[in-house]
């Protein structure tokens, strides 16, 4: 088993944290995992992305040219990364901020109105995560919640409830959509 995910969006949308949280959960479930940020000459408001590989075997390359799962948070990332996804891959995208669509017919596509349905815009990432793990349970939502509880910094702990709510909101949205 190996999953290769790309998380992409604007800086500030919680792209890096969403990837890290999944990596923590995968580690806590006993999987091999790598997380790599894009760290080129980035700027505030520019694009940010990170790559997560989860495997039951030791991971060779942490660098992925054609991810099996795309978690796309904004329009520029949609144009950049959707063409790179593996055939028969999964695309989860934030419909709130992405008006365009793709002509690819070889992907499972889950549009999620994530920003609109987030308890706060900062929790868009958790709505997306809830949707992802509902449509493709590479880990359980409970495992992700446990990782969040275990690794959230102390000064953010009061936001746990809102994060859980955002995850549940994403799960509901995914259940309503026929992928």
């Amino acid at each position: 088993m190996q999953h290769e995910l790309i998380f992409a969006g604007f800086g500030g949308q919680g792209i890096m944290f969403a990837g890290q949280l999944l990596a923590y959960a995968a580690m806590d479930q006993g999987y091999h995992v790598t997380w790599i940020p894009s760290y080129g000459p980035e700027m505030r408001g520019g694009t940010a992305y990170c790559t997560v590989v989860i495997s039951d075997q030791p991971i060779g390359s942490p660098v992925v040219k054609h991810p099996s799962i795309g978690m796309i948070f904004n329009a520029p990332s949609f144009d950049k990364f959707v063409p790179m996804l593996q055939p028969n891959g999964l695309l989860v995208y934030n419909q709130s901020l992405i008006p365009q669509s793709t002509t690819r017919d070889d992907l499972l596509i889950l549009p999620v109105s994530a920003t609109e349905n987030a308890p706060a815009p900062q929790l868009t990432n958790m709505v997306m995560m809830g949707a992802l793990l509902t449509v493709k349970p590479i880990l359980t939502l409970d495992a992700l919640k446990a990782a969040l509880e275990a690794h959230i910094p102390a000064h953010r702990r009061h936001l746990l409830k809102d994060n859980f709510e955002a995850l549940a909101s994403g799960a509901r949205l995914a259940e309503q959509v026929t992928v």
């Binding site: 580690m27 995992v33 790598t34 997380w35 760290y39």
Partner: peptide, 9 residues
């Protein structure tokens, strides 16, 4: 740089 920037268990 890849080893420096990557997170792994």
């Amino acid at each position: 740089g890849l080893i420096g920037q990557m997170m792994e268990p």
